[in-house]
Design a protein around this nucleic acid. Structure first.
Lengths: 147, 147
DNA sequence: TCCACTATTATTAGTCG
DNA sequence: CCGACTAATAATAGTGG
């Protein structure tokens, strides 16, 4: 996918294939980490290749085993197609809990910002994460966003 | 990683996160397919997310299960370095509990045999499970084994 | 909510030392 | 064979409908 658009087929040349593997494994694991972090999903991967002796596991052995064991033990009908009522109910509950979670996060942010305001008013140091020029807007933002 | 360089952290906004997840899952699975095809390695992935009801499995259920089962059954030292404390601790605890269990079993046996001895001395029937010719040795065995 | 678009960044095939 | 580099393609955050 660069210099030359590459044909999606087994790379016959050994050296070329090994080099490509190294680069792409790196990229692949980065993508896994990003997806995992940005969206907080349960994600496991395992690669067996002749280019390393031990399997390459993400995120780590225990988590991967736990995620996969859970899947293996799922009853067949849950592994695919037809979703049962129980699962739908669970999904709804998860959605509800997520909304509550977001609310709590907002509340925490508000408290955090408000504390920063008080701290600043009492002459404390400006937190590293916040620039002085933000100060004028801080109070406005707090009220605008959270009330 | 585009328009704006994105911070590698959980995306708080629900909608934004869902959209990002969709796009990135697509990209991730593409990368998996490419690595798999170009370099012909054994590769399995599994994602559980609130954005789909069924786990997203690559390359397919059976292959993924087979690859992971193989891994789970590997001897510990092959599973590699990053086997963490949790599992070691669990293993140690199980070993300890098993030892205690064995001790308790021995204790129970001793009590059982001793009771049989008393029963015999008081003229009770020989238990079916024990032959008369064993009797000579019983007391010796009790002491030899358990003291 | 979800396309489709596109400006940008990220990935990587091939090159060089 | 390997690491660094870079030209070129690929992925995707934000946008507009």
């Amino acid at each position: 996918m660069v210099r030359k658009k590459v044909k999606l087929a087994f790379i016959e040349n050994n050296t070329e294939r090994r080099v490509s593997y190294r680069k792409r494994q790196k990229g692949f694991l980065t993508k896994a980490r990003e997806l995992n972090t940005l969206c907080d999903v349960e994600l496991a991967t395992l690669i067996n290749s002749p280019y390393h002796n031990e399997p390459e596991v993400f995120p780590n052995n225990e988590a991967a085993i736990s995620i996969f064991t859970k899947f293996i033990n799922l009853p067949e009908e849950k592994k695919s197609k037809n979703m049962k009522t129980l699962e739908k109910i669970t999904t709804k509950r998860i959605e509800k809990i997520e909304k509550e979670l977001e609310k709590v996060r907002k509340e925490n942010k508000k408290i955090e910002y408000t504390n920063q305001m008080y701290g600043l008013l009492n002459g404390e140091e400006m937190p590293n994460s916040r620039h002085p020029e933000d100060l004028n807007d801080l109070c406005y933002v707090i009220n605008k966003t959270y009330n």
